[in-house]
Amino acid sequence: MGVFGMSIETPCCWNPLHSTYEYDKKEKDYIIRGVHSYIQQFFGPSIMYQVNSKNVLPISLENVESSSIKCPENTKPEELEACFQNSPNQKTTIHLEGPLAGNICSDSVIYKADFLDVDCLRNRKESEILRHFKGKRLRCMNTSFSNSQVIEFLNAWKSGQMLKKSKLLGIHTNFDLNEDEIMGKVDHIKFNKRHGNKENTVATTTGQYLIRESDGQKGYLTISQMSVHLAVFGQTGGHVNFDI
């Protein structure tokens, strides 16, 4: 599958020395829609269409499967939501950066992305993202999650109240986390696994996992000083990779 990416930055007229085209800023949206429509007609559905936008919200385009948006200062959630009007269910990734002037609504299409990567939505209720996300993979960067918030989330996951469909979660916080304090208030199971044969033991891996009460799903958990990773691999376990 090919990939067509459209970057939306400062508009620029035709310059033969640099092969660029400068245009009236008022015509930007019209030109972008025209170029996108032409590319779709030429290549058809075999192309994965991506939108990359920095410090300006992109217009809503059809058949976009992946978006990376660095929001301008004080972007309103409804303005961000409008960017996905013509491609509401993006199949791959939505990456968001920058502060919002409000909270994303609970039924936002943003929460339905396969992979949601949120970086630095300052002063927002970050727990709302965990509560409403409906996709498979979630990463929250530069958050202000505390020990008590992590404890609350993990217990909510165990009881089936949050992230029922998610397979991978990564939380990176700007505050120090205390693994002993967190695990002391979350019911979990520790495991040890030795690698090697009977004669030679290469290494021993230790870890812990949670069991979701409603369906017995296992959530393999790793906590460091500034991050929490949870990987759900069903009742029988399997290979765990936290690199998301």
Score class of each variant (00 low, 15 high):
Ile211Phe: 00
Tyr23Thr: 08
Tyr38Met: 12
Asp215Pro: 07
Tyr220Thr: 12
Gln41Phe: 05
Phe191Cys: 07
Glu62Gln: 13
Tyr23Gly: 08
Phe42Trp: 03
Glu79Asp: 14
Gly44Thr: 08
Pro77Arg: 03
Asn197Thr: 13
Val109Tyr: 12
Leu100Met: 05
Asp119Asn: 11
Cys13Ile: 12
Leu230Tyr: 07
Glu73Met: 10
Glu81Arg: 04
Leu130Val: 01
Met48Tyr: 02
Asn241Trp: 10
Arg137Met: 13
Asp243Val: 10
Leu168Gln: 05
Thr236Tyr: 07
His188Val: 06
Phe145His: 02
Gly207Glu: 07
Pro88His: 07
Lys164Pro: 03
Ile151Asn: 10
Ala113Leu: 05
Thr20Gln: 13
Glu213Cys: 06
Gln225Val: 14
Glu213Arg: 14
Phe191Pro: 10
Arg194Thr: 11
His132Thr: 02
Thr204Tyr: 00
Trp157Val: 09
His188Glu: 05
Asn103Thr: 06
Glu213Asp: 12
Val240Thr: 07
Val228Met: 05
Ile8Lys: 03
Val35Trp: 07
Leu57Lys: 03
Val118Asn: 03
Gly2Tyr: 04
Lys218Leu: 15
His95Thr: 14
Phe145Lys: 02
Ala231His: 09
Glu97Thr: 13
Ser87Trp: 04
Gln50His: 14
Ser148Ala: 09
Phe233Asn: 15
Ser37His: 08
Ile151Leu: 11
Glu73His: 12
Ser60Gly: 08
Ile182Met: 06
Gln149Lys: 15
Glu62Pro: 02
Thr206Leu: 00
Val3Ser: 09
Ser144Met: 06
Val35Gly: 00
Lys165Met: 05
Thr206Arg: 14
Ala203Phe: 08
Gly44Cys: 10
Ser53Asn: 04
Cys83Met: 04
Leu154Ser: 01
Gln50Thr: 14
Val232Thr: 04
Arg131Phe: 00
Lys198Glu: 15
Pro11Ser: 09
His36Gly: 08
Thr236Ile: 09
Gly196Cys: 12
Tyr111Ile: 08
Ser60Gln: 07
Cys105Glu: 04
Asn89Ser: 11
Met141Asp: 06
Gln149Trp: 06
Gly2Asp: 08
Asn142Ser: 05
Leu210Val: 09
Ser7Met: 09
Val109Gly: 01
Glu22Ser: 15
Thr173Asn: 06
Asn15Asp: 13
His95Arg: 15
Ile8Pro: 05
Pro88Val: 15
Arg139Met: 12
Met6Glu: 04
Pro77Asn: 06
Leu17Pro: 00
Thr222Phe: 02
Asn200Tyr: 14
Gly234Val: 10
Ala82Cys: 01
Gln225Ser: 15
Trp157Arg: 04
Phe43Thr: 04
Leu138Glu: 02
Thr206Phe: 08
Gly196Arg: 01
Thr20Phe: 13
Ala156Cys: 02
Ile244Met: 13
Phe84His: 05
Asn155Thr: 09
Asn63Trp: 01
Lys218Arg: 15
Leu121Tyr: 07
Glu65Ile: 11
Thr20Glu: 12
Gly219Asn: 07
Gln208Tyr: 05
Cys83Thr: 10
Gly234Trp: 06
Ser68His: 02
Cys13His: 14
Asn192Met: 14
Ile110Met: 05
His188Lys: 06
Thr205Pro: 00
Cys140Gln: 09
Pro99Asn: 02
Phe153Met: 13
Glu152Ala: 15
Thr205Asp: 08
Glu27Thr: 01
Ser108Trp: 02
Gln50Phe: 09
Asn52Cys: 02
Ser7Thr: 14
Cys12His: 09
Thr204Lys: 11
Gly184Lys: 11
